[in-house]
């Protein structure tokens, strides 16, 4: 029987020389070589620069915003108008962000509600259902979707998607109009719903890609545990894949939400801006922070720009809160997460 046995490793000559001189000691710590010192300086410098940039952005936003808010006659949080020049208020600035908060959050929620289930479906299909020959092209197409510039989405949304949504909106009005949320009075469907649908398409790639990566990392042994109990493919996904991927799905959704909250040009192209809050998401009008800044910035006075910056500061804070909430959700589930298995 010629059974191969492991050959013993060649004897190694470990030299147990201990550093004696100060130079040798420093060398042992890796602090004297020029390469190490340069790299240390570079990485430390990059960290400091990052903090400085963040501080500068925050200081800039806070200062300009405070200038604007000091003279604002309206209530910044509850006013339904944007009139920093004071055209309708005897030259006194009068503006508030209520409409923008509403529009931004509603359109982003619509986008997430549409994109997250679809993205999870695509990610599961690529990672667990599709044959390998099909999975790669699909993943590639999803990546392409992410590479389309947002102005192209905006034009497509305004010229192709919006005109074709009247049928859907009439249908929603017929069956769900009684809720008040889906009332549709006709006219161009350049509403928050349209914006939400467009944003959903735009954030689909990032949510799909992150979820797919997480699903592919599910340890084989977790999936086999379910399989060996007699789980079907869907039950394996329910028992092993989704619980493991939960925090990944949340972070993916937050990344998508971040993009949806801040998306500017596509929203500005599609939305028919009107500084009102509609109970119905199907009627045109409304606005978002980024869209409002983009459409007003070029024609605004110095003070008008300060007012827009104040609204930008609020968007910044909302994004921070959203991220904080996401971290909280993930942290609370840590005990049950797959990380310690």
């Amino acid at each position: 029987m010629d059974i191969p046995t492991d050959t013993p490793p060649p004897p190694s000559h470990v030299e147990d020389a201990k550093p004696t001189t100060p130079e040798q000691k420093r060398a042992a710590r890796g602090a004297t070589r020029p390469g190490d010192r340069i790299f240390l300086g570079l990485s430390r410098g990059s960290g400091i620069v990052l903090l400085l940039i963040m501080a500068a952005v925050a200081a800039f936003l806070a200062y300009r915003a405070s200038v604007a808010l000091a003279d604002n006659e309206g209530n910044f949080l509850t006013t339904f108008e944007w009139d920093p020049a004071g055209v309708a208020h005897d030259g006194k600035p009068y503006f508030g962000i209520a409409v923008l908060v509403f529009g931004t959050i509603v359109s982003s929620i619509i986008a997430l509600a549409i994109a997250v289930p679809v993205a999870i479906g695509i990610a599961l299909f690529i990672s667990h259902y599709a044959p390998r020959k099909l999975a790669a092209p699909i993943a590639y197409v999803i990546d392409l979707l992410a590479a389309v510039p947002s102005i192209v989405y905006g034009l497509w949304g305004a010229l192709v998607v919006a005109p074709n949504l009247t049928g859907l909106y009439s249908w929603l009005d017929d069956y769900f109009g009684w809720t008040g949320v889906f009332e549709y009075e006709g006219g161009a469907p350049r509403s928050l719903m349209t914006v939400g649908i467009l944003l959903a398409i735009m954030i689909l790639p990032i949510i799909t890609n992150v979820s797919r990566e997480v699903f592919l990392q599910v340890p084989k042994m977790h999936e086999e545990a379910a399989l060996a109990l007699g789980a079907t493919r869907w039950e394996v996904i329910r028992m092993s894949v989704l619980p493991f991927g939960r925090s990944g799905i949340i972070s993916a959704s937050m990344l998508g939400l971040g993009r949806a909250l801040g998306e500017t040009i596509a929203v500005a192209t599609v939305l028919s801006p009107n500084f009102v809050i509609n109970a119905s998401v199907l009627d045109y009008g409304g606005g978002t922070f980024a869209q409002n800044i983009a459409s007003k910035f070029s024609e605004a006075s110095e003070y008008g720009r300060d007012a827009l910056i104040a609204s930008g500061l609020v968007l910044f804070v909302i994004t921070l809160l959203v991220n904080g909430a996401a971290r909280l959700i993930i942290a609370r589930r840590k005990e049950y997460s797959g990380a310690n298995a």
């Binding site: 042994m221 060996a228 007699g230 028992m239 619980p243 493991f244």
Partner: peptide
Amino acid sequence: PVNVRRTIGMVFQRPNPFPTMSIFDNVAAG
């Protein structure tokens, strides 16, 4: 094969309880 695995149980090399489930739910999973 799903029915086969329901009648023939398996224990693996490395312990693999479902990490997101409680002890009770792990036993009740099957």
